[in-house]
Design a protein around this nucleic acid. Sequence first.
DNA 1: GTCTATACTAGGATAGAC
DNA 2: GTCTATCCTAGTATAGAC
Lengths: 208, 208
Amino acid sequence: MASRSTYHHGNLRAALVEGALALVAERGIGALSVAEVARRVGVSSGAPYRHFAHRPALLAATAVEMAHRLTASLRDVLPELHEPLGDLDAVDVTARAAAAYTRFTIEHGAGLDLIFSDELHGLDDRDLLEAGRAVMDALVPTAMTVTHGDARAALRLIERQIAAAHGYAALLRTGFLDRRHPTADDVADHVAAIARSVALTSRDDALT
Amino acid sequence: MASRSTYHHGNLRAALVEGALALVAERGIGALSVAEVARRVGVSSGAPYRHFAHRPALLAATAVEMAHRLTASLRDVLPELHEPLGDLDAVDVTARAAAAYTRFTIEHGAGLDLIFSDELHGLDDRDLLEAGRAVMDALVPTAMTVTHGDARAALRLIERQIAAAHGYAALLRTGFLDRRHPTADDVADHVAAIARSVALTSRDDALT
DNA sequence: GTCTATACTAGGATAGAC
DNA sequence: GTCTATCCTAGTATAGAC
């Protein structure tokens, strides 16, 4: 794509967010630079500043788009919850969601850690808050089913599953796992296993 | 500490590693710069290059020292394993080790992810390989007790516990948890709970 | 063995031309 | 709305003085 000279991008802002997503996916949040994104999109290094005041603003817009996509990914594997779900079924569903979340973070280089990061929280971006809430709303109902309606326990369960996902993703990124599990699906399976273990524990605690 | 002029450090190399450990602890691996470490130690920005050829070499030396300290931390909470251990006891001991590992990574900003990272693996540093092996040697026996002697399952168990630790540590670092659990001990408790759940699952799988 | 000075790279951010 | 040009900051690494 892209020809030369007098670039007339219909929508540079969106193109920049897209480029930022790709860069974060390839090299992680820390490697996101405005200059590199501009280079990828094919504009000058100053151009992005017409759309984003500074690097954190670009990162926040990227996080919003990521949250939208994450919500969509999770909804793909989570049921609508109009009909009740057996609690053993709910355990399996949370494990499936954890696996999906794992694949997402591996493929995108980030997830809820970016969306809810302190770094961006300081910006008070309403779109970001809204998009982050939507992600959690997708996860909570099934977790609540596992914990028999205990909201605090449900959040704790989600947190533990998310932590497992990020931990495995981190080990994969740094190369700790490379002598064993190459694919994202393998890693997602491990996380699903952990997610299942902790969900069963949560459920049993709830039954006490 | 440190006075002015004609710095005569008995051992600048060790001081640099110490400074690097402190910097990694405060700001993470990505923020480690030779210049900043030199500044902290109180020498010029060129001085470190008399002891380390480049940034990765300093990072590797830092990782070696970290591995030594990690091994010591783990040995503090792990039994000598001269006498046999009941398998339920072994589950608890792995959970305790996971908690200790979690506190270590939070306090040091890194752990096995750095020690076994691809970035450093390319250097083929014998000291680092040796030090990394020592960490694993500290963890394996108890895990093997849980898995009734299945070595592959034991490594998988350790990996999952390590992943949980890094995941929670990452969520804490990014600020995702700040609305809930401030202290390292709280986080370590969560990881211990996950570690216990996965250890029980591992044990039950081994009994099948 | 450390210091000073320097060359080079890369990114953040702004000003003014078009 | 994008480009060119520019200034600043910060880091890696090397050379030569002391």
